[in-house]
Design a protein around this nucleic acid. Sequence first.
DNA 1: ATCTTAATTGACATAAAGTGTCAAAAATAA
DNA 2: TTATTTTTGACACTTTATGTCAATTAAGAT
Lengths: 108, 108
Amino acid sequence: MSIKMLSTNTVGEKLRNLREEQKLPLRKVAALLDIDVAILSKMERGERKITKEIVLKLANIYKYNADELLVSFLSDKILYEIQDEALGIEALKLAEERVKYMKGGDGE
Amino acid sequence: MSIKMLSTNTVGEKLRNLREEQKLPLRKVAALLDIDVAILSKMERGERKITKEIVLKLANIYKYNADELLVSFLSDKILYEIQDEALGIEALKLAEERVKYMKGGDGE
DNA sequence: ATCTTAATTGACATAAAGTGTCAAAAATAA
DNA sequence: TTATTTTTGACACTTTATGTCAATTAAGAT
């Protein structure tokens, strides 16, 4: 991953909105995360991969629902995989079935 | 990707089954694909990434439904992304909504 | 059992993708 | 304008992926 093109509502956008709502400059948040401002800037805009760890830390910093951000984060990664694929939806449905199956039977 | 652990019915397994049903040795199929036997062997067992291109070529070689294999291939990639994630199913559902939304609106 | 073919494994070199750091340029606010 | 924030790109470095090959292991035939 790392490039964007995931239409709207990426985790990056959500995280940027949260930060702006709280009037926090990249500088401060990056300091809290102990990463470079440039990286945080790129993460928010989808130019760099966001990690699960960063998402969780930001949920904590912004006092925002971590699960919602995680789901958004994961769905970004999923959407990235099926970009431009005509069979994307079928693949999603099959993946869903397989996940449920794994949980049900003595999975894996 | 590249490592396995995707439970059953990976594309790799399907491709191996197809090859064995037709009694074709790796050697011959690899030759048709113009790749090394070792690579094909690893692809079938999920040790190496399979590419969309290879999947399509194999569908053709085995005279098997290409879409089914592609969906299997894509769902492998999806499942890989949400491995061990408690919120995997939620992420899949959100991804599905987002795909539909993209197709509907003047999605980008 | 041997002989033969098929399949797997691991080492290696190379290529590609991702990462962190920094400074300069661009945008925004005061 | 000046000050601050944000974006951009270059760079060195690391990690991951890829292709090639040889050696090992497994399977089948006789």
